[in-house]
Simulated assay, not measured.
Amino acid sequence: MGQLNLLGLCLKDKSLQDGHGTPKLFANLREYKMLRRLNRELEMLFYRTNKQVSAELKDLVFKTFWEKLRSNSNGFSEEYDKYITNGTVTVETYQSIIIWHIATDLCFYTDSGMNEPNLSRKVMSKDVSDYMMYILAMCPLAFSTGNAKVGFESTRVNVEIYFLLRNLSGLPKDQVCEKMISGYKANDFLKQKYLSREQKYLSIESLLPSAIQLAKELNQKNGKWEILSFG
């Protein structure tokens, strides 16, 4: 199962860098303006990983899909979107994946002292989240909309700028996630003073703050890992 973590990609592993945020293998590409985009594509290849699918995860996927088939509930996307927009705004699939991926990471690294069942769901939630981000980043044509690639890259840039402006680059990931949640302010990301509800949720720029806000709300719920592991 392919794995790609957006926050990890933006933070980057210092042991593999040239000191300026780029893996040593591709650092020389920085000197060539026309190759900068290729450099960012190569970075994703460098930071992706693979993970064995556990029997427990297979069992969870099977049980969850079987429960959905037997019920008359909405699909996965509709049920997840209601946590983002209270069901008032339509969210594109790629937007939902990005928001939930970041929120899952924030919950994962700011949660501790869990019992074994919840710990298992916590790990599986992150594995699935990193897999969905892998599909989005590496296979954007799998989505019906052409905005998936643009949405991923725009969010990646916004996260990198966020880390830079708040001096988060280079810190351990658990500290970064803690600071992202504790230091979040609803108006931090808005360039304009007034935006409609639709603009706020659907603008590419709003995906990061929406993810942080979602993580803050999930952290207040006792059953957040049931929600994050397919609901």
Rank of each mutant, 00 (worst) to 15 (best):
Q3I: 05
L7K: 06
G8R: 15
L9S: 05
L11P: 01
K12H: 10
K14W: 11
K14N: 08
G19P: 00
G19F: 02
H20W: 01
G21I: 04
K24S: 11
L25Q: 10
F26V: 10
E31A: 12
Y32P: 07
Y32Q: 14
Y32D: 13
Y32F: 13
K33H: 08
M34T: 12
L38C: 09
N39F: 06
N39M: 13
R40H: 03
E41F: 04
M44A: 13
L45S: 03
R48F: 08
V53Y: 07
E56Q: 11
K58R: 08
D59V: 05
T64W: 15
T64N: 15
F65I: 12
F65H: 13
F65M: 11
K68L: 15
N72Y: 08
S73T: 14
G75P: 02
N86V: 03
T88W: 03
T88F: 07
T88E: 11
V91E: 04
V91I: 15
E92C: 08
Q95A: 15
Q95N: 14
I98S: 01
I99R: 11
W100S: 01
H101S: 13
I102V: 14
I102A: 03
L106A: 01
C107G: 02
C107L: 12
Y109G: 08
T110Q: 10
P117T: 03
P117Q: 07
P117S: 04
P117M: 02
K122M: 12
K122C: 10
M124G: 07
S125D: 00
K126N: 08
D127R: 09
D127E: 15
V128R: 09
V128H: 05
D130F: 04
Y131I: 04
M132Q: 14
M132G: 09
A137D: 12
P140S: 12
P140W: 02
T145P: 11
A148C: 04
V150D: 10
G151E: 05
E153D: 12
T155N: 11
R156Q: 14
R156A: 11
V159M: 06
I161F: 01
Y162N: 12
L165V: 10
S169P: 02
S169L: 13
L171R: 12
K173Y: 00
V176C: 03
E178M: 06
Y184S: 03
A186G: 01
N187G: 00
E198P: 00
Q199P: 07
L202W: 01
S206Y: 02
S210H: 03
A211N: 04
Q213A: 03
Q213M: 05
L214Y: 00
A215H: 06
K216N: 05
L218M: 06
K224N: 03
I227E: 08
L228G: 05
S229M: 00
G231R: 10
G231C: 12
